Structure formats: C-alpha cells, structure tokens
Simulated scan of single mutants.
Amino acid sequence: MSNEIKPSIVLVHGSWADGTSWQHVIPLLLQDGYTVTAVQNPLISLPDDIATTKRVIESQPGPVVAVGHSYGGAVITGAAVGNPQVKALVYIAGWALGPNESISQLIGNAPSPLVKAIAPDAAGFLYIDREKFHEVFAHDVSPVEAQVMAVTQKPAASITFEQSMESAAWQTIPSWYLLAQDDRAIPPELQRFMANRMGAKTTEIRASHVPYISQPREVANLIIEAASSVVTVSSAVK
C-alpha cells in the first residue's frame, strides 16, 4: 500500500529581491500538487535570515525541500543544518558556502561584473546601479521586467556578504544545483566549483543570474526532480 506524501517546498530569495521574485516558478509547483512557501527575509544579516528561514521550515507539516537563489543558497545552507525535516537542498545559481566561509571570500577569488555595479547607501545597504542592472544581473529578462526588478530591488546589508556559519547543511543533505552558464553575478566556474564540492546533481543552462525569472520551467523541473526523490524515499519507508 503506497502512502506517498509530497514534501513541502520552501523558496528562499537572494539579495536585491524578495519572495515575490519566485512568481513565475510558484504556479508551476502548485500545479504539480506541492505546498509552496516563499520566505520573506530582511537581508539585514545572515544569522537573521537563517533564523527567519528556519522558522518557516519548522512550520511545515512534513518533509521539506529547501530552495535558495543566489544569497538564498547561503541561507538554506545554514537554515537546514541539523533539521531532519529537510530532505533535499536545491541551489539556483546559489551560494553553497562551506563552514566558516563567506561570500566575499569566495567572490574575491573570481570577481564578476556585478561587483563593480554595486554601491552602498549611507547606512551600508548595497544597491545595484539601475543603469547597469539589466546588463549585469538579468540580461536575458525583458527590459521592462528588468526595469521593474531594478526599481523594486531590496537592498542587502553589506555585512551579509562577510558573515559565515560553522556548519554546512549540504555536507549531510542531498543537493541539486542549477548552474547558470551566462551568469554575470556569480561566475559560472565558481558555481561549478561549489556544485562539484557538494557532489550536487548539477544541471547547466544558458541563463543569466536569474533563471528562475527567465527560465522558470527549467527551475521548476529541477525542484520537482529533487522533490520526487523525497517522495520515493518516503514511500519506500512506508
């Protein structure tokens, strides 16, 4: 007797975005019968964002697939540590940090065009220059949509790029990685390094840093692939 329970999917946005940035992916997951929750992180500090995401994960009724885009990858890497609820991690052009490793430490070894387009405000929150946003962040998104993204960008505190965590969830949880080959924010070779280090099941596509906006079907397919592995495991146990 089969008693399959689909996992809940928790989506975690990156810097310069909020939970609504998953708007093209969410309907595809809902149509496939998944319970989906998009986290709204404050982007004030990595520990704060990890704590917010942990609360959302712990509120889910059963097994969870945690998905992180960009900086959201660093968040799920910390938020899923030690939580048996999380059965799979999915990184969408995401930061899969190792223990005691920061984003600035990694990007320093492989600078990207995005870095030169970022400017802080008086309080130390970082913005992407609106004139450069389309080119460095979302060049395969329509100019109109990229303009809206630039205008509504949610700034990130500069400290979020300097902070690290003691443990990385991918060391014990199966991981998937969607590598964006035309990314101008996180260099593709750096994404490949992180994916290989994790032993992640990796899919590469020709996309900018925001494939979840420009190619939502591809992103949804990878999330569903990861989620399907959880269903299979759950069914076998039962």
Rank of each mutant, 00 (worst) to 15 (best):
A17R: 07
T37K: 14
T20H: 13
S59D: 15
L30N: 14
I50K: 07
I26L: 14
Y91A: 09
A66T: 01
Q105A: 11
L106A: 11
A51K: 14
K54S: 13
N109V: 12
V81S: 08
I57N: 08
I26E: 12
S70M: 08
W16E: 03
T52F: 13
V75L: 01
I103Y: 04
N83I: 12
T77V: 00
T20D: 13
L89Q: 06
N41R: 15
N109K: 15
A51P: 05
P84S: 14
E101Y: 03
A51M: 13
H69M: 12
A79W: 02
P61C: 09
I92N: 03
A88D: 06
P111S: 10
L46F: 04
G68Y: 01
P61V: 09
G108D: 10
I107F: 05
G82V: 06
V64K: 11
P63C: 08
Y34G: 10
Y34K: 09
V75P: 00
Q105P: 06
Q40N: 14
P113A: 04
W16Q: 04
S70L: 06
N41Y: 14
R55L: 15
D49S: 11
H69D: 10
A88L: 03
L43E: 07
P113W: 03
H24W: 10
L29Q: 05
P99G: 06
A96E: 05
V75N: 00
Y71Q: 03
V67S: 00
V65G: 07
N83E: 09
H13K: 07
V56W: 06
Q40C: 15
L29E: 04
V67H: 02
Q60H: 13
A66C: 00
S15L: 03
P47V: 11
G78P: 07
T35I: 14
S45A: 13
P47Y: 12
I103F: 04
V65H: 07
Q105S: 12
S112T: 10
P99Q: 08
P47K: 11
V75D: 01
A93D: 13
P99D: 07
A38V: 15
L30Q: 15
N109F: 14
H24P: 05
I44E: 15
Q23M: 13
K54F: 07
L43R: 05
Y91C: 09
Q105M: 13
L28H: 05
G82I: 01
V25W: 03
N83V: 07
H13V: 04
Y34N: 09
S45L: 12
S21H: 08
D49A: 10
A51T: 14
V25G: 02
G78K: 02
V36W: 14
L28P: 07
Q40Y: 14
